[in-house]
Amino acid sequence: MARKILFNIFAWMVVLMVAFPLFWMLVTSVKPQFELFRRPPSMLPETVTFEHYWRLLSDTNFLGYFWNSVILSTATTFVVVTIATIGAYSLVRFRYRGRETLAFLVLFTYLLPSVVLILPLYLMLVELGLSNTITSLVIAYTTFALPYALWLLRSFMAGIPEDLESAALVDGATRLGAFKDVILPQLLPGIISTALFTFILSWNEYLYALVLVNSDESRPLTTGVMNMLISSFNIEWSLLMAASVMMSVPLIIVFAFLQSYLTRGFGAGGVKG
């Protein structure tokens, strides 16, 4: 019993440690300027103001960056999930020479630190005439999200009984038809997990965005906000916190919607034995 209480206290302490910065971010973003640096700091704001949010939306290019990030993350997710789904199907269902080796090679590329790849990728993208575009970031993010996505989906795919596909073929479906009618619905939880992973990764990525994109109209949120609000003379803390809140909201919404899919036992009861 005592152990249980101790464990609970410990768990709550960890939760508080994780949650406090988020709480502080939220509080700071609604504090008026004059309350920001008061000592001792006020835990809850005395006056709540949304002026920072308003300034961010009306006076800065925040919405432009936001839109770039949405396009960038959605495109990357779409490309990665499409290629990974088809690739995983091939790795699990077809028999060909070097199949396992191929899977391990793919994993190996994931093990390389992404910093190592940044210069070669940059040079290649300049060569292709894609520097300073959102497309260049989609390609770059795909290179490091795809290997992991492929492995994730491969294990989901391996969990789908082969009999289901055989049954669809006997029932008159073509290979593609069986894939669409039977495999894809079964793979949905896996696809959603993979999509979430890729989306979050592209949404939060900073380093590649910093190196590959230098024009303001192509910048995503991460580098855009930093560039705009942090200069060597001044950090606009209130605006930065308001921007951080607004950057986090889409992820929280997406996660809240898809979370039930992730945990739902989708494939239960289809085959026995």
Binding site: D163, L164, A167, L169, V170, D171, V182, P185, G270, V271
Partner: peptide, 17 residues
């Protein structure tokens, strides 16, 4: 398989979940 005019019952039943 679809062109053979056969039907098959699988050991695992293979019902579409």
């Amino acid at each position: 398989p679809g062109q053979r005019d056969i039907a098959m019952v699988f050991q695992s039943y293979a019902l579409y979940p």
